[in-house]
């Protein structure tokens, strides 16, 4: 069926298979391939994007369910002049990424978290990111990055 979505500010209508997952719509139809698929079970969060401003796992949303909605992916996060979003900048500064596979989803999950809780404690950061797996960093620097992005000193 037809879906009309606004992805990173760009509205478009596409004909898609009913069963198409949002993540595959973004990757294969929209050509936005930063968002990755890391599991089959809604566990890893690598595919996290914002749907109408809220974080969702795009492997567990049908593309047709995004009809008429706004989707934000990591590709749309930096400013037009290339300036990194504070979360992106903090991830770089604190070495919150290594292989980069979890990163787009992790960053979007952090953006969503900070929108709801602009100055989270370390405990709240960990609690808020429980749906995102990372195999490289041991999460240590991801936590630091979120604290830095929220204007706090991670010590």
């Amino acid at each position: 069926m037809q879906v009309t979505t606004t992805v990173n500010g760009e509205a478009r209508t596409d004909e898609v298979e009913d069963r198409l997952l949002l993540v595959h719509y973004l990757r294969d139809v929209r050509g936005l391939r930063a968002t990755n698929v890391g599991c089959d079970t809604t566990s890893c969060g690598a595919c996290t994007v914002l749907l109408d401003g809220e974080s969702v796992k795009s492997c567990t949303v049908l593309a047709v369910q995004a009809d008429g909605r706004e989707v934000s992916t990591v590709e749309g996060l930096a400013a037009a002049d290339g300036t990194l979003h504070p979360v992106q900048a903090a991830f770089r500064q604190e070495h919150g990424l290594q292989c980069g596979f979890c990163t787009p989803g992790m960053v979007m999950a952090c953006v969503s978290l900070l929108k709801d809780n602009p100055r989270p404690t370390e405990h709240e950061v960990r609690d808020g990111l429980e749906g995102n797996f990372c195999r490289c960093t041991g999460y240590h620097n991801i936590v630091r990055a979120v604290l830095v992005a929220s204007g706090q000193d991670p010590k």
């Binding site: 796992k57 567990t60 808020g128």
Partner: peptide
């Protein structure tokens, strides 16, 4: 229930 993303949907 689940995680934040799951609770959003």
């Amino acid at each position: 229930v689940g995680d934040r993303q799951v609770r959003h949907r």
